[in-house]
Amino acid sequence: MRIRRVVTTRAGGASTGEFDSFNLGDRVGDDPAAVAANRKRLATELGLTKIAWMEQVHGRTVTVVDGTEETPAEATDALVTATPGVAVAVLVADCVPVLLGDAEAGVVAAVHAGRVGARVGVLPATLDAMRQAGADLARVEVLLGPAICGQDYEVPADMARDVERHLPGSATKTRKGTPGLDLRAGLWQQLADAGVGKIGVDPRCTFEDKSLFSYRRDGTTGRIAALTWTEAE
């Protein structure tokens, strides 16, 4: 199988105002018709007949999907599938979108790893679910997508220390010298410690890159999507 991965930007959609213009989030206050149009365009442009979405809640629940689901997975922050052609999607506007896949097993996953989810172990839970679906961690390839960078993610010192205890490598300093979090650094270390050898990082910072949505920068705003799926070679 061949693994496909796509990360959207905010350009080229039907949304207006704060959500201008390719907002794919359906729970952020945008016009539902605009979101539906954007999601339809996404599927059409990528040639997908099924995109699985989830109602993200900053937890560690993982749901396995096969494309027969008619509604987004409830209270879930990671989706796993072994069904070819079914794309699993994660929505973000500063949190880390994590796309994982084992091409030989045909197993892929999309993970919403914000501060809380990363702290409570959503990524290890996803790796466990992928293993149960037939994936081998030695073959898994990972993309850590665009997210707020440590230089811009300022948090209270006690919060930085707490997250560091649960996600070693995540504590950092902002460009102002204040306590901060680099979740992608912590997640990279967590993956490496789990035996995942192929880890790519999209270096874009959502806070700094105006082509991406950022909740920290803008408050009311849209969501980009990161998707992955398998297809026959």
Results as ranks from 00 to 15, higher is better:
Tyr153Val: 01
Lys210Arg: 15
Val142Pro: 02
Gly134Tyr: 12
Ala185Asn: 06
Thr178Gln: 15
Ala157His: 12
Thr228Pro: 09
Gln151Ile: 03
Gly145Ser: 11
Val140Ala: 08
Gly134Ser: 09
Cys149Pro: 01
Gly177Ala: 01
Ala185Gly: 03
Glu154Met: 07
Asp152Tyr: 12
Gly177Ile: 00
Lys210Asn: 11
Ala194Leu: 12
Gly180His: 09
Thr220Ala: 15
Pro146Tyr: 08
Val163Ala: 04
Asp218Gln: 05
Ala129Val: 00
Val201Asn: 09
Ala194Thr: 01
Ala225Glu: 04
Gly200Leu: 13
Gly169Arg: 06
Pro156Ser: 13
Leu143Asn: 06
Ala194Phe: 12
Glu231Val: 01
Arg175Trp: 09
Arg216Glu: 11
Gly197Pro: 02
Ala138Tyr: 00
Ala157Pro: 02
Gly222Asp: 12
Gly169Ala: 06
Thr172Cys: 12
Lys176Asp: 15
Ile199Trp: 07
Asp209Val: 07
Thr178Ala: 15
Asp136Cys: 10
Pro124Asn: 01
Arg161Ile: 01
Gly197Asp: 03
Ala129Ile: 00
Leu137Glu: 05
Arg217Ser: 07
Arg216Gly: 08
Thr221Ala: 10
Asp152Gln: 14
Gly222Cys: 12
Ala226Cys: 08
Lys198His: 13
Gly186Tyr: 06
Ala185Glu: 09
Arg216Thr: 09
Asp158Pro: 05
Gly200Tyr: 09
Arg131Leu: 10
Phe207Arg: 08
Pro168Gly: 10
Trp229Glu: 05
Leu143Thr: 12
Cys205Glu: 02
Arg184Ala: 07
Leu123Gly: 02
Asp152Gly: 07
Phe207Leu: 04
Pro179Ile: 14
Pro156His: 04
Arg184Ser: 03
Leu167Met: 09
Asp218Cys: 04
Ser214Ala: 07
Val163Asn: 13
Phe207Met: 06
Leu143Ile: 10
Gly134His: 11
Ala185Leu: 09
Gly219Thr: 02
Arg165Ser: 08
Trp229Val: 07
Ser214Cys: 02
Trp229Ile: 03
Gly197Trp: 01
Lys198Asn: 14
Leu143Cys: 02
Thr230Cys: 14
Arg139Leu: 09
Pro203Tyr: 13
Thr174Trp: 11
Glu164Cys: 05
Leu123Ser: 06
Ala226Tyr: 00
Gly180Trp: 13
Thr126His: 03
Arg217Trp: 00
Arg161Asp: 15
Val155Gly: 10
Pro168Leu: 04
Leu181Ser: 10
Leu123His: 05
Thr230Trp: 14
Leu181Thr: 11
Pro156Ala: 05
Ala192Asp: 14
Gly186Glu: 02
Pro146Leu: 00
